[in-house]
């Protein structure tokens, strides 16, 4: 969002009419993206929707599931649908931080150090199996994900906009994985899990994936500049005081509940609001309603929370706790 398009600014400047125009744009882009993605990821409309929501909210997405359910496919589909620079990083235990961020190399001809950008310098970064890298390497992502810049040898390089990191990971119980540091988990706007496909979808999958990869036929349906404009438009979606209060209440309750060892951060609340705005726009509304917040509370909050030992013993996940929170926190405006 560092880049501003002049045309966009004027559009956003005209208040009333701007909302309608922006919604049209969002709707249009979302339709095309989702159509493209659904053609590859079959039988998972909710996953696709959340993915697009996160993209439109300008957040990073963490896809967590067991191997083989199409995590990477989802990331690659989204990347390929957008006409933008796409880089893919295969995280391995021996991956070094400089491989991600870039490195300064001494140029013999010019007799000075030159910066060779790492894999992070792209609009869409697909980080595959992110929890196979050592925490040290994972940490290299921290600055870039939050501040959209990279600092190497004292020089700060700004990343292009849009910038979205889509990381896949296996559940941490799997063999040879390092759990993501809390700080890094907090930087992902949402975590989704693919889940197994339905029987019918799986049957279709076996049939169609026989000869060619479905990715082959996929052409970009939008470009980086359009995504930037969408991001701008989403920021104009109205969030009333009541909705903001609801988010604050939810986050505050997550900090006080005994079911959690670590509650949601203020950044979590920010992410939730942004995601809710994008979701409302996808629904064709120019204002956020509590239903948007409820839909996204699970994906946005669950991966940041740390369950208390009682919750773990009860074999309940943080997603269950979030569901409980939603049931307990009154939707404002409550009775005065």
């Amino acid at each position: 969002m560092t880049t501003t398009d002049t045309g966009l600014e004027t559009t956003a400047g005209r208040d009333g009419a701007a909302d309608a125009a922006d919604l049209g744009l969002i709707h249009d882009v979302a339709d095309r993206l989702m159509a493209a993605m659904t053609s590859v990821i079959e039988g998972k409309p909710d996953v696709v929707r959340t993915t697009v929501t996160v993209l439109f909210a300008g957040g990073h997405l963490l896809i967590e599931d067991v191997p083989g359910v199409g995590k990477t496919m989802l990331a690659k589909t989204l990347a390929k649908s957008i006409d933008a620079t796409v880089r893919r990083i295969q995280f391995t235990p021996d991956l070094l931080p400089s491989d991600v961020t870039g490195v300064s190399i001494f140029n013999q001809d010019a007799r000075r150090f030159e910066f060779r950008p790492g894999a992070i310098f792209a609009n869409v970064v697909v980080g595959d199996e992110i929890n196979r890298a050592s925490p040290k390497t994972q940490s290299a992502l921290l600055e870039s994900m939050e501040e959209r810049q990279v600092t190497v040898d004292g020089t700060t390089y700004t990343l292009q906009a849009p910038f979205i990191v889509m990381a896949t990971q296996n559940p941490i119980e799997m063999e040879g994985t390092y759990p993501l540091p809390e700080a890094q988990r907090d930087r992902f706007m949402a975590r989704i899990s693919m889940g197994y496909p339905s029987a019918g979808a799986e049957l279709d999958l076996l049939e169609s994936h026989g000869a060619t990869s479905p990715l082959d036929g996929l052409t970009p349906v939008t470009d980086a500049e359009t995504i930037n404009r969408v991001l701008q438009a989403v920021a104009h979606v109205h969030a009333s005081p009541a909705v903001r209060q609801y988010i604050v209440d939810l986050v505050a309750r997550s900090r006080s509940t005994s079911a959690l060892r670590l509650g949601a951060s203020p950044r979590a609340g920010l992410h939730l609001l942004r995601a809710a705005r994008a979701y409302a726009a996808l629904e064709g509304r120019d204002h956020v309603i509590p239903d948007d917040v409820q839909v996204l509370a699970g994906p946005v909050l669950a991966h940041r929370l740390m369950p208390s030992s009682e919750t773990q013993l009860a074999r309940r996940t943080t997603a269950d706790v979030v569901t409980d929170l939603l049931r307990q926190v009154p939707v404002p405006p409550a009775a005065r």
Binding site: I289, D291, Q294, L326, R327, V329, P330, V331, A334
Partner: peptide
Amino acid sequence: SPDGVTLRQ
């Protein structure tokens, strides 16, 4: 109307 219920629900 329970606490955590939105208008639509």
